[in-house]
Design a protein around this nucleic acid. Structure first.
Length: 857
RNA sequence: GCCCAGGUGGCGGAAUGGUAGACGCAGCGGACUUAAAAUCCGUUGGCCGUAAUGGCCGUGGGGGUUCGAGUCCCCCCCUGGGCACCA
């Protein structure tokens, strides 16, 4: 079924084979096939209007090579592709042009699919998914619904990042240095009602299970740091001025309790105003106002000139009864620990800076031995001093003992805190998954059947009323986006959906959970079984759809389950996951969280979604700068394919350097791999289009060729397994260059070569395989078998060194011993010269490698 | 500031502690051609050279371990990434 090209014409050949793959469904992954399964997943793209970026095919080529290699080795490979298609740019475009996001999305996906197909990737297109398809987001909503029912989703009025330009709130992770990650617009704090997912409930498991993952260390470390577990103690300080209240602080250094010379509470701390004496009221009020208005950029800025004011109140140190002044300062965050600290300036850098500024005492309570050599603040190990009965104890010992003693008196307890915060899960946007949630009044809530309620009620205050959240019945999912075009932001901080009363206002049946539009069913007003309710108008963030998509590929069209248990049992989770390091924390942490939740529900049998992970590096522009439109250094895959073909692009992307590394693009460089493909072609196809004349039947006659072939089989196999595709290619180049110099080559050698190249350059691989008389697709033609006997030789090269420097070499019998090799070396004039007049003090012989003569004088 | 990754020819890069620079780009010289393209052959780290199976230097800098270091150890410099008042 080969083409009839005489010359290597990628455009014709690639089109031809892409059609074959499409019509024959060459890459279909067969459920329950008898072969071992192998699931290799790419991070699916956001189909932007700009089309495929050159960075996409980099990772996708690597995974494709692995997928094709695994198929050749007899695996049942699942290699799917889909679209992470909810997202702000599509909505922004809709606002600007009035085009429905669905329309834009369809076009963008069509373009992405075309581009991806033109690269010859071996996806099973029957499993394509789109996160914006109601048949998909039905299950995203379903998962949220389960989270809600189990008390892992709640609402909270909390200060969030509001971006006036984008007219939406952003997650902490979407704000970088006070600017929106998308578009670099300034952001500010606003209090809005938000949905929050209790990812912190999984913090320990997310941390612990990192250990077993075959992931890049740096990524594991980033997640560890993000979760930020720290062990310490909560210590209770009595408040003489407020006998009914207490001040609880979190500290990792209970051992330094005797060194606490002041307390600090966050400006948002609930006791802040209560603790403020009349005398200090004005100053504290002013300070709070200032802190609240400060953006977090200012508050956490590098300059970080510390600031604070005294409240006028004191707290009692539980270990010695000392009265300690309480300050308000914005270097203490309400969102971490208890929002209050005991300040130990001698042994904490931040407290030290503050104490110096406000002239507060800085007594040393830890001695590292030589106090002269250990200026304050000192955070190192040592013994306690000036600490009453604890003086003399080692730091670690004292932590235990003080915590235990406080606990015994009911004035403290051991405590673990996490840097990780709960996940702000709502967005005020149109183009996202609607929440399957209704709000009912406080009076109506008790009337609703328990089936639609969460473990603990979720409520919020709205215009003086308390509203309660209930969920839609599972069979009412998906809750689709309304058809009316309402993607203009409301501007109030509410979602555009809030502007569509026909959609928002419904009747809900208190028993069945059924809903009906309010306006069209006014008769229900008198029916006690029907309660008025409002739909939740926020939508889910873009992360939602990508949190579980890898599971949907196992069973993409199932209408009754997220994934059928037997399919989950067969395919499990991805064996290999390839994608950018920019998702090191967010996507990968959120997906792990959802996965663990689904594990708890029994939907997946694996504790972790991605056992093996690889990050491809970023490809820079030719100028070494990050590719960007404004710099005009963007490489368009379409143009490269037009000029050199997809096989050349794929090979070049892999040849650029180690996959994980950041590396610059060089358009000239693609000539090299393009020449390689042409040479490869000419080894198989003669000038007239028939098989090359130099190919002969039967086994390879040339021992050198045979040796190099088998070396290549070994090297390419190992390199593909480890995604070292740059060196796999150079080895293939070496082999092809060698064959080019030979007048005769076995057809078998050529067939092995073609099978080795096929994962990297699949179109030319298929074409040459067919011309060499191969049966069926090269994809399933098996993998060349490495024969070690072919690379073994009787003679080995020994390098001669004198004092570690190269002074010649010789081929010697591989059984030759030290003395025999030394004798051969001595015969070489160059070696002899360097030995002349010197004393041979030592002979180092590494069989098969080296003979090093150590001489003196 | 803290944590991590990395610094190798003109360029991208290769190298289980064992000939540094594989492979490719670019350059130079040559063959083919009326010419060009394409292709092929040779050459290409620096310095010195009686030009050789020659000598010295050379993997960011400085020390060290070793018969032998790009590779291991210590200190420093630079680049990239992450975190950044998390108590």
């Amino acid at each position: 079924m080969a083409t009839n090209c005489n010359d290597y014409t990628p455009a014709e050949i690639e089109k031809h084979w892409q059609n074959v793959w499409d019509t024959e469904k060459t890459f279909r992954a067969e459920d329950f096939a008898d072969k071992p399964k192998y699931y290799i997943l790419d991070m699916f793209p956001y189909p932007s209007g700009a089309g495929l970026h050159i960075g996409h095919p980099e990772g996708y080529t690597a995974s494709d090579i692995l997928a094709r290699y695994k198929r050749a080795r007899g695996f049942n490979v699942l290699h799917p592709m889909g679209w992470d298609a909810f997202g702000l740019p599509t909505e922004q475009y809709a606002i600007k042009t009035g085009t429905h996001p669905r329309e834009t999305n369809r076009k963008n996906i069509d373009n992405f699919r075309r581009q991806i197909k033109e690269l010859g990737f071996s996806y099973d297109w029957d499993r394509e998914i789109d996160t914006t398809d109601p048949r998909y987001y039905k299950w995203t909503q379903w998962i949220f619904r389960e989270l809600f029912r189990r008390g892992l989703a709640y609402v909270d009025e909390r200060p969030v990042w509001w971006c006036p330009e984008l007219r939406t709130v952003l997650a902490n992770e979407e704000v970088i240095d006070g600017l929106s990650e998308r578009g670099n617009h300034p952001v500010e704090r606003r209090n809005l009602r938000q949905w929050v997912l209790k990812i912190t409930a999984y913090a320990d498991r997310l941390l612990e299970d990192l250990q077993g993952l075959d992931w890049p260390d740096s990524t594991k470390r980033q997640q560890e740091a993000w979760i930020g577990r720290s062990e310490g103690a909560e210590i209770t300080f009595a408040l003489p001025s407020l006998p009914d209240d207490q001040l609880i602080v979190f500290t990792t250094r209970p051992d330094t309790l005797f060194g606490a010379t002041y307390m600090v509470i966050a400006p948002e701390h609930p006791l802040c105003r209560k603790l403020t004496t009349d005398e200090h009221k004005d100053a504290v009020e002013a300070y709070i106002q200032q802190a609240v208005n400060k953006s977090d950029l200012d508050r956490t800025d590098l300059a970080k000139e510390k600031s604070g004011v005294f409240t006028g109140s004191y707290a009692t140190n539980p270990v010695n009864g000392e009265e300690i002044p309480i300050w308000v300062a914005d270097y203490v965050l309400m969102s971490y620990g208890t929002g209050a600290i005991m300040a130990v300036p001698a042994h904490d850098e931040r407290d030290f800076a503050f104490a110096e500024q406000y002239k507060l005492p800085i007594p040393r309570v830890i001695s590292g031995g030589d106090d002269e050599a250990q200026p304050l603040p000192y955070a190192g190990p040592g013994k306690l001093v000036n600490s009453g009965p604890y003086s003399g104890l080692e730091v670690e010992e004292a932590k235990q003992k003080i915590t235990a003693d406080l606990a015994a008196q009911g004035e403290g307890k051991a405590s673990v805190q996490y840097r990780l915060r709960d996940w702000l899960f709502s967005r005020q946007r149109f183009w996202g998954e609607p929440f399957p949630i209704l709000w009912v009044s406080e009076q109506d809530y008790p009337k609703v059947a328990a089936d639609w309620k969460p473990e603990n009620p979720v409520s919020y205050e709205h215009e003086g009323q308390t509203l309660y959240a209930i969920t839609l019945p599972g069979q009412d999912l998906p809750l689709t986006l309304p058809e009316v075009p309402a993607y203009q932001p409301s501007g109030t901080g509410e979602s555009p959906l809030a502007t569509i009363p026909e959609w928002v206002e419904v009747w809900v049946h208190r028993q069945s959970g059924e809903t009906l539009p309010r306006a069209e069913n006014s008769d229900k007003a008198d029916d006690p079984d029907w309660l008025p309710a409002r739909r939740e108008t926020n939508t889910m963030p873009q992360w939602a759809g990508s949190c579980w998509y890898y599971l949907r590929f196992l069973d993409p069209t199932n209408e009754d389950a997220l994934v059928a248990p037997e399919k989950e049992a067969y395919w499990g989770v991805p064996d290999y996951y390839i994608g950018g390091a920019e998702h090191a924390v967010l996507h990968l942490l959120y997906a792990r969280f959802w996965h663990k939740f689904l594990y708890d529900l029994g939907i997946t049998k694996k504790k972790e979604p991605f056992s093996k992970l690889f990050h491809q590096g970023i490809i820079l522009g030719e100028d070494g700068q990050k590719m960007s439109k404004s710099l005009g250094n963007v490489v368009n895959p379409d143009e490269i394919i037009d000029q050199y073909g997809a096989d050349a692009l794929r090979c070049y992307l892999m040849f650029l350097g180690p996959l994980e590394q950041m590396k610059p693009w060089n358009t000239k460089g693609i000539e090299g791999v393009s020449r390689f493909l042409k040479k490869l072609w000419r080894e198989v196809v003669g000038a007239n289009g028939a098989l090359a004349g130099k190919l002969h039947e039967g086994p390879e006659k040339d021992a050198e060729t045979s040796r190099l072939l088998h070396q290549t089989i070994a090297k390419v196999t190992e390199d593909i397994e480890n995604l070292r595709l740059n060196t796999a290619l150079s080895q293939l180049m070496i082999l092809v260059n060698h064959l080019g110099r030979k007048n005769e080559v076995s057809r078998e050698t050529a067939r092995d070569l073609v099978r080795l190249v096929a994962p990297l350059a699949p179109h030319v691989g298929e074409e040459l395989w067919a011309r060499l008389g191969g049966e069926g697709s090269v994809v399933y033609a098996g993998w060349p078998v490495f024969d070690e006997s072919k690379v073994k030789t009787d003679e080995v090269k020994i390098v001669f060194q004198i004092n570690g420097k190269y002074r010649g070499e010789a081929m010697v019998d591989k059984t030759a011993d030290k003395d025999a090799v030394l004798a051969i070396a001595r015969e070489q004039s160059r070696v002899a010269q360097h030995l002349e007049g010197k004393e041979l003090v030592k002979v180092i012989f590494v069989p098969g490698r080296i003979l090093n003569l150590v001489v003196k004088g």
